[in-house]
């Protein structure tokens, strides 16, 4: 338990840990170098795949991603569907995570395990499951009103299934970090449980919403397996950027696939940076 009122942010924790680091002595250098060497293999690989894309990309093709209506459609649909998925994911993740961390009930472990299924299940299997779910009578009934399979709602649902699981885990970590005594104090001060949630816990949890949204957005952006199976790969309909890369590779158009990949990369980086800025702003609020 943290003494000193409330919890620390990750950055504060890091700063605190940094004060207690061992100094680097000459005798430690070979050991630390060996560790650094191992770590660098992975880091070099990450930089390598980014560099290779940038190196091989043909700029006119990147331009075409935005001028050609087919590609442009995929870019816009990607951005829009990911944004909707992110909002939905955080919206579902917050109450789920609150219940899972603040209420004890029968079967909680089972529910906790169920929440992990989308994380551990192969993405293709999730897509297949969705496809079958919407063949069942309740699914078919829903389809009579809103079409999901091979349509945009299906695309969003496919992205949501995985993204929400990650958002929920992130929010659960956030709620766990929030001192439960704050809520106890709030109810002794006259709050009902829901008032304590809205006035005290939720504002405290805001700092976890940005990381949750970021991870949901990143997962949604990269989602391919369930999208492929459940929403299909129809040009100008349910085509998102990962689908474009897949379709272009299928016809051997590596140049175009790389161009789309670079656009995905840049968009993701921009969103990541924006979310970080937003997160910092929120912490200061």
């Amino acid at each position: 338990m943290s003494v000193g009122g409330g919890q620390r942010t990750a950055a504060e924790q890091e700063e605190r840990n940094a004060m207690h680091l061992l100094p680097v002595r000459r005798a430690d250098v070979p050991f630390l170098l060996a560790l650094a060497l191992i770590a660098s293999i992975y880091i070099i690989l990450i930089i390598g795949i980014l560099a290779a894309k940038v190196f091989y990309v043909e700029l006119p093709l990147v331009g075409e991603v935005f001028t050609n209506p087919g590609y442009r459609y995929a870019v816009i649909l990607s951005l829009l569907s990911c944004s909707v998925t992110t909002v939905l994911s955080v919206w579902i993740a917050v109450p789920t995570a609150y219940i899972m961390t603040r209420v004890s009930f029968f079967g909680k472990r089972l529910v906790d395990a169920i929440l992990d299924i989308p994380i551990v299940l192969p993405p293709l299997v999730i897509g297949l499951g969705l496809l079958m779910l919407f063949q069942t009578p309740p699914g078919a009934w829903i389809q009579q009103h809103v079409r999901f399979t091979y349509a945009i709602p299906g695309l969003i649902l496919a992205q949501f299934m995985v993204a929400c699981a990650f958002a929920t885990r992130t929010m659960m970590a956030t709620f766990t970090e929030i001192n439960p005594r704050q809520e106890q104090v709030a109810v002794t001060l006259g709050c009902s449980r829901s008032q304590a949630f809205w006035l005290v816990v939720l504002p405290e949890a805001r700092r976890g919403m940005i990381p949750a949204a970021t991870i949901a957005w990143a997962r949604a952006m990269g989602e391919f397996g369930p999208v492929l199976v459940f929403a299909g790969t129809t040009r100008m309909r349910t085509e998102v950027m990962p689908t474009t890369i897949f379709l272009e590779l299928q016809v051997g158009n590596l140049g175009m696939a790389t161009a789309v990949a670079v656009v995905m990369l840049v968009t993701s980086l921009v969103v990541l940076v924006l979310m970080r800025i937003a997160g910092r702003g929120m912490r200061m609020m």
Binding site: M1, G5, G6, N179, R181, Q184, V185, T188, S192
Partner: peptide, 21 residues
């Protein structure tokens, strides 16, 4: 009675202040 209607004030070990206020 719920906690808020008991006329009790609570000061926990670590203060448990509300960090957003």
């Amino acid at each position: 009675l719920p906690p808020g209607q008991r006329g009790v004030g609570l000061v926990p070990q670590d203060g448990a202040l509300f960090t957003t206020m």
